[in-house]
Amino acid sequence: MSIQHFRVALIPFFAAFCLPVFAHPETLVKVKDAEDQLGARVGYIELDLNSGKILESFRPEERFPMMSTFKVLLCGAVLSRVDAGQEQLGRRIHYSQNDLVEYSPVTEKHLTDGMTVRELCSAAITMSDNTAANLLLTTIGGPKELTAFLHNMGDHVTRLDRWEPELNEAIPNDERDTTMPAAMATTLRKLLTGELLTLASRQQLIDWMEADKVAGPLLRSALPAGWFIADKSGAGERGSRGIIAALGPDGKPSRIVVIYTTGSQATMDERNRQIAEIGASLIKHW
């Protein structure tokens, strides 16, 4: 067993022997301040990774656009098919120029040779490549099948209805392509620590998230040296922004954090800054 596999296998073990965790309302004060600064709703939840206990939450059962955070769930569904012998990570998928959609920095470079399922998941999570996500959605049967996968996990809230990039439209009061912070946090925890996926697939999923290259201005910008984070960000229309993450000190994750916002007129930089400040408060009061 590799060191990384050992780390993920012992996530519940280490967490069980940690000192009790206590909620700190100071972080919620910052979440509410972010709402004021952005002029928009902000949803927040913080779960203990081992027990699933909610440590703090704000608007945990209000719907927010998922945006690209759905790509972690998508690759979880792909990995479940791999575990069941219905898919192979090494299978190569070929596609054409007509398949390319807006923001496809990886797939646009491989029109000639195609990409493997493993490479597509890596591109979808680490670079948020939209064509990679659409190609992977095709392998599982489309958005409705991802929703069905989530329902089978016990998540009857999260739903995907459309493809990239239309799913980022974020129309107010439109339930399409949305989740709730509580539902997303619980589902992410199941994917990373539950028995739904094999140990190898859980490790692969967290490795992809740990290698995320496009979430630097968010929670990662607030992390002290030595902290662990595996995350996936999302951005959408109407001032929408979000991030889902597993993080913790001492090089291992111990909490799940989900943050979503929508309806702001603020710039992307300002949305990023507010999420980073929430992260800084979380870490300060850990």
Rank of each mutant, 00 (worst) to 15 (best):
A15N: 06
G76C: 06
E175C: 12
E237W: 10
A276I: 07
E270T: 14
D48Q: 08
R81I: 06
L28P: 05
D33N: 14
D36F: 15
T198R: 09
Q97C: 08
F149N: 06
C75M: 06
V42I: 13
Y95S: 02
T116V: 06
P143D: 03
R63C: 07
G236I: 02
Y103T: 05
F58C: 08
L146V: 11
P253Y: 03
N152P: 04
F64C: 02
F13L: 13
W286G: 02
T179D: 00
F70C: 09
L196Q: 15
A183S: 11
I3W: 07
R7F: 09
E35G: 05
T69V: 03
T107S: 11
L146S: 01
G242A: 10
T27W: 02
A246I: 13
T179R: 00
S254V: 12
F22C: 14
P172N: 10
I171A: 15
L247H: 01
S240D: 05
I278N: 00
P143H: 08
L205N: 01
L100E: 04
R162D: 09
A246D: 03
N152I: 09
K252H: 14
V31I: 11
G85W: 06
L199C: 15
R91W: 04
V257R: 00
I229A: 05
R176S: 09
L205E: 02
Y260T: 04
K30I: 09
D155P: 01
F22N: 10
A183V: 13
G39T: 09
D113T: 14
G39E: 15
K30G: 05
T126W: 04
N130H: 00
I3Q: 11
L223E: 02
R7G: 11
S233Y: 01
N98G: 12
E277F: 08
D207P: 02
A124V: 08
H156F: 10
S51V: 06
I244N: 02
A132L: 00
I93Y: 06
R255H: 05
T267L: 10
L282C: 11
L167Y: 02
S240F: 03
K232T: 01
K53N: 15
R118F: 13
L192G: 02
L188W: 04
L196S: 15
S2W: 09
E237T: 11
T107C: 09
L219V: 10
R273Q: 10
M67K: 02
S68T: 00
R41D: 07
K53I: 14
D207L: 12
L79G: 02
T179V: 02
K30P: 03
L150C: 12
E61N: 13
T131W: 02
G52Y: 05
E169A: 14
L89N: 05
L47Q: 07
I275R: 00
D33I: 14
P105K: 06
Q86N: 11
